[in-house]
Design a binder for these strands. Sequence first.
DNA 1: ATATATAATTACACAATGTATAATTATGTC
DNA 2: GACATAATTATACATTGTGTAATTATATAT
Lengths: 202, 202
Amino acid sequence: MPPANRTEKRKQQTRDHIIRIAVELFQHQGFQATTMDQIATEADIARKTLYNHFSVKEAIADAYVRDQSMALAKANRQILDRHPDTASRLLAALDKAYAWVETNPELARICLGYRMKNMWHGDGSENEETGTQGLMAEILRRGQKAGEIRTDIPIKLLLLQIDVLRGSIVMDWLRDRESFKLRREIARTVDLFLYGATGKKR
Amino acid sequence: MPPANRTEKRKQQTRDHIIRIAVELFQHQGFQATTMDQIATEADIARKTLYNHFSVKEAIADAYVRDQSMALAKANRQILDRHPDTASRLLAALDKAYAWVETNPELARICLGYRMKNMWHGDGSENEETGTQGLMAEILRRGQKAGEIRTDIPIKLLLLQIDVLRGSIVMDWLRDRESFKLRREIARTVDLFLYGATGKKR
DNA sequence: ATATATAATTACACAATGTATAATTATGTC
DNA sequence: GACATAATTATACATTGTGTAATTATATAT
């Protein structure tokens, strides 16, 4: 769905332009070392325009990651039909998601902190399902239909849980990439998510 | 364990003084409306001294909540022996914790966002178990000994999960205090934590 | 096509945040 | 009492984020 009128298109363009320039700077100098001033100058726009689009620096990283996530999720929707049950779908989806994180650890970290903070403060607009989250949500919905996932908990809360577990894996992995067996940790985490802290039947 | 030397004692004193003054201001004017400048002026110390103790405003709220949480947890350690199993202990502990949150919703919210953000960025020093977390950790350890809690997941990760679930309850409750049945939600959340997203046996 | 409304961008000013540096004061140690 | 250490302070500064009003580009109605 391309933007209807030219105004929207122009706005989109500056937005995309900002993201492109900013991410370039982030990757060259690091997120912390890049200032909003610098981004505005490099993008050749007024600082205020930059703030009109993104009120804080983290939001730029977040927007970028969302775009990436969107594309990724689109390519991974096949997971839904190629796997027989919720557990294997979650495993597959997480596996794909981490392949991306591995290539952008810093932005992934920034983004995670930003989202967690906004989860409690935000007006809800920032909490829209990103690509990967949308995929996860669909997996959970199918799981509910199949009777594999409980229906007395809002999907939103389940998604939050997955996000946090996902985040903790990323962080552990970033701390010590050598000894960390990513796939094993993912499997363990999915198990925790599905069967809880008891890990056994009631 | 009172501070050993006078230097430490003085430092503690200014720190406590800052917290006392700041929280007073927070409760009178709100957190957002209170500036670091104002806190420094009211506390009659240099702004830089304030920043030496707390590098961001949220850290003051966090320190206060930690102190409160410490006292609370101390008073609630009896829960460990007065309840027969992990589930009822968790329920009781969360129940007590929320009684406090109800009296300080704003600070609770600030603090939660701050911790969530720092969970991934922090150097670990801020992630020390607070009072309530310490109690939760003890509950989980006893649960592991009794075979009620799985041992293949680090306690730290389980605590994180509880924190997030706790947080989501608080937020939902803050959004709509009328229709929200706090006790029922707590029970549901504990169930989710213990038995996972499937909610049934494997 | 022209006038009018709307929305993005801009320039400017400002309050607040957070950091860096060096001087000053209080405390601990010899 | 002399020296080292650590907290506090004064000062200056870069950065962040917001508020206001002017300017430009686009959309819409006549």
